[in-house]
Amino acid sequence: MADYSSLTVVQLKDLLTKRNLSVGGLKNELVQRLIKDDEESKGESEVSP
């Protein structure tokens, strides 16, 4: 898992935009949104054959 907390808000928003996720909120919220997306993506890849 990436260390999103070391990134700037601009970098976080860029990552969120690329994933089609909301870019609104405080830095901590942006980090949590990326972590949640990582976990959901990981779960999907494990279920797929």
Rank of each mutant, 00 (worst) to 15 (best):
S5P: 06
E44P: 08
E29N: 04
K18N: 09
S48W: 10
L34G: 03
G24E: 15
K27D: 05
G24I: 13
Q32K: 14
P49Q: 15
E44M: 15
G25R: 01
L16A: 05
E40W: 09
V9G: 05
E46P: 13
N20H: 08
E39N: 05
L7A: 04
G24R: 13
K36Y: 03
T17Y: 08
N20M: 09
L21V: 04
G24N: 15
D38I: 08
L12I: 09
L12E: 01
D14F: 06
K42I: 09
V23F: 10
V23H: 08
N28E: 06
K42Q: 13
V23D: 12
V9D: 10
K13D: 03
E40K: 14
L34W: 00
D38F: 03
L7H: 05
E46V: 12
S6E: 08
P49G: 10
G25V: 01
E46H: 14
L30W: 10
I35P: 02
Q11G: 06
V31H: 04
R19D: 00
G25L: 00
G25M: 02
P49A: 08
D14A: 11
L7F: 14
S5T: 07
D38H: 04
L26F: 10
K18I: 05
L15Y: 07
E39L: 12
S45E: 13
K42F: 11
L7P: 01
S48R: 14
K13N: 09
V47T: 07
S41F: 08
R33M: 04
D38Y: 01
E29I: 02
E44W: 08
N28F: 06
D37M: 03
K42E: 07
L16N: 02
L30E: 05
G43H: 09
K36P: 00
I35D: 03
V23T: 15
S48C: 09
G24T: 14
S6L: 10
Y4D: 02
D14Y: 07
R33I: 01
N20C: 12
V31A: 07
S22N: 11
Q32S: 11
D3Q: 05
S41L: 10
L21I: 01
L30I: 03
T8F: 00
L30M: 10
E46Q: 06
Q11E: 13
D37H: 07
L21A: 03
V47R: 08
D38V: 05
S48F: 06
E40D: 14
K13V: 11
D14K: 10
K27T: 04
I35F: 05
L7D: 01
R19L: 00
I35L: 11
V9F: 07
E40I: 15
N28Q: 15
N28I: 05
K13M: 09
K36G: 06
D38T: 02
G25F: 01
V47Q: 12
Y4K: 01
L15P: 01
L34H: 00
Q11F: 01
L15Q: 09
L15C: 05
E44T: 12
S22R: 06
G43I: 05
D14C: 06
S6T: 07
A2N: 15
V47H: 06
K42N: 08
D37P: 01
P49W: 00
Y4L: 02
K36Q: 10
T17W: 08
E40L: 12
K13T: 11
K42Y: 09
E46L: 07
L30S: 04
D37F: 12
I35V: 12
G25W: 00
L16W: 00
V10Q: 15
L12A: 02
L16M: 04
V31Q: 08
S5M: 07
K42A: 13
V9K: 10
V23K: 07
Q32V: 06
A2I: 15
Y4C: 01
N20T: 05
R19C: 01
D3V: 08
K42S: 13
I35G: 04
N28M: 11
A2L: 15
T8I: 00
K27Q: 10
R19W: 00
L34S: 03
N20G: 13
K42G: 10
D3E: 10
L15N: 04
V23A: 13
K27W: 03
G43A: 13
L12P: 02
T8S: 10
Q32L: 08
K36V: 11
A2C: 14
E29K: 02
D3A: 06
K36W: 05
K27S: 05
D37I: 03
S48M: 07
L34C: 04
P49C: 15
S48Y: 11
S22Q: 08
Q11W: 01
E44R: 14
D14L: 10
K36H: 11
S22M: 13
V9I: 10
R19Y: 00
E29S: 06
V47E: 11
V23E: 08
K18L: 08
D14I: 07
N20A: 13
S41P: 13
A2K: 15
G25T: 02
V10K: 14
E44D: 09
E29C: 01
G43L: 12
K27G: 03
L21W: 00
Q11M: 09
S6V: 06
K36M: 12
E39K: 06
L12T: 01
V10A: 15
K27Y: 07
S22F: 09
L12Q: 04
S5H: 12
Y4V: 00
S41M: 06
